[in-house]
Simulated scan of single mutants.
Amino acid sequence: MLLTHEKLLRILCHVWSEKSSTKYSPENPARGQCGVTALVVNDLFGGEILKTPLPEGWHFYNRIHGQVYDFTASQFKEEIKYEDILSSRDEAFADTNEQQYHYLKHSIISRVRDSD
Rank of each mutant, 00 (worst) to 15 (best):
A38S: 15
Y61I: 08
I64F: 00
S17P: 12
Y69D: 03
L44R: 04
S74E: 14
Q99G: 01
G57Y: 07
H14Y: 01
S20V: 06
H59I: 12
G57V: 07
D95N: 15
K51S: 09
E91P: 08
D43L: 03
D84Q: 13
P55C: 13
W16Q: 01
L44Q: 06
W16L: 01
G32N: 09
L3C: 03
S17E: 13
I49M: 09
K23G: 01
F71Q: 00
R113F: 00
P53T: 02
N62T: 09
L2D: 14
L50W: 02
H5T: 12
D116S: 14
L44V: 03
D116H: 15
R113D: 09
A38D: 08
E6F: 03
Y103F: 15
K7Q: 08
G57D: 03
V40W: 10
N28V: 11
M1F: 15
L3V: 10
H14D: 14
N97A: 07
R63Y: 00
T4A: 06
A30F: 13
L39K: 02
S115I: 06
D70F: 15
E6D: 14
T22I: 10
L50D: 01
H106R: 09
H5R: 14
D95G: 04
L2Y: 12
Y61R: 09
P55Q: 12
S21A: 07
R113V: 11
V68T: 14
I108P: 13
I85E: 11
S21C: 04
H5A: 07
W16I: 01
E98D: 07
G57L: 06
I49Y: 12
K81M: 05
Q99D: 13
F71I: 00
S21L: 04
Y61Q: 09
E78H: 13
R89S: 02
A30S: 05
